[in-house]
């Protein structure tokens, strides 16, 4: 389990991470979303003890990373694809890491096979493609069979097969009880991988919700309703607090409503309805709304408003 308590980081006068507090639970894939520069990598670096927080704490299983007795056996992290000395062989890079944490060296072979680099074990890291380096980074993360996985943009540089593979890996690890915390800017990737989402913008928490709640709360969830008495219906819906847009002649688009609500209002008014249908937002849309709001520094707790 990962816990952030009022975690902050300032670089000079810029507040990169602003009092972030959330928990990442075990047994799930938690997506960490935010635009570039939102503070995702900085938060992860503080979690791994690479950067010192300006305020607050970042804990793994209740302790800071530096207090873990054998960190690689508790936490596997992929932060930089650019890791390992260019002149060093892939297997020897992993051997060094294994020795540093008293991990049996036999694990090196096992993880190289798991990530599909067994053939390249004796090659120098400098000869690797970006995708191979990414796989090597993942092999290093898996080396200590850790119960917490922290991946920063893991699909960078991977081909379609690689993307599907890492998605499967994260799902499998979470299913076997691991805590999986993964950052990404690829929303579509998160939609098919994550169970839970933490969204930040400009260093502030925007949402900490299950994937279902994030999607349900999007303002882009709308209802299309067609009625011969569209005008009356629109007035009633507006009185109920919904934004109504004329979609075409006799058709209305009701933002943020569900078909049940619109149907119910029409029914009590005795208004005839010719068409009624809901449109669910994609994660992409939900995310765009959230981060657009972050521009004027208004954190929104999604799910509470609906």
């Amino acid at each position: 389990m990962i816990t952030l308590e009022n975690l902050s980081k300032s670089f000079g006068s810029t507040l990169a991470v602003d009092s972030l507090s959330f928990e990442v639970a075990a047994g799930k894939v938690t997506g960490f979303l935010g635009p570039n520069g939102a503070g995702k990598t900085t938060s992860m670096r503080m979690l791994l003890g690479l950067d010192a927080p300006s305020g607050g704490r970042a804990l793994i299983n209740g302790v800071s990373y530096g207090q873990l007795a054998a960190p690689l056996r508790t936490v596997g992290a992929l932060l930089e694809p650019r890791t390992g000395h260019r002149g060093q062989r892939a297997d020897s890079h992993l051997c060094g890491l294994a020795r540093s944490n008293s991990i049996p060296v036999s694990r090196v072979r096992a993880v190289l096979e798991e990530v599909g680099l067994a053939e390249a074990a004796k090659r120098r890291i400098g000869t690797f493609s970006l995708g191979m380096r990414q796989r090597l980074g993942i092999a290093a993360a898996l080396l200590g069979d850790p119960e917490v996985l922290i991946f920063d943009e893991p699909v960078n540089g991977l081909d379609a097969d690689g993307v599907a593979w890492i998605r499967g890996l994260m799902r499998a690890k979470a299913a076997s009880g691991a805590t999986v915390f993964v950052s990404s800017h690829l929303m579509s990737e998160m939609q098919s991988t994550a169970d839970h989402l933490v969204v930040i913008g400009r260093g502030k928490l925007l949402a900490d919700e299950s994937m279902d709640n994030v999607l349900a709360a999007s303002a882009q969830n709308s209802v299309i309703v067609a009625s011969p008495q569209a005008g009356e219906l629109a007035t009633a819906l507006q009185r109920a607090g919904y934004t109504v847009v004329a979609a075409s002649e006799g058709r209305l688009k009701v933002i943020g409503a569900s078909p049940e609500v619109v149907g119910g209002i029409a029914h009590t008014m005795g208004v005839r309805v010719n068409e009624l249908g809901g449109r669910q937002a994609s994660l992409e849309q939900a995310y765009t709304e959230l981060t657009a709001q972050s521009l004027d520094y208004v954190p929104t707790r999604i799910g509470e408003s609906s």
């Binding site: 389990m1 209740g62 069979d145 119960e147």
Partner: peptide
């Protein structure tokens, strides 16, 4: 989680490094 002071994983054999 019951004993937050202990951060060591016991999944792999090996001494405390």
């Amino acid at each position: 989680t019951g004993e937050p002071a202990v951060g060591e994983s016991a999944q792999l054999p090996g001494a405390r490094p």
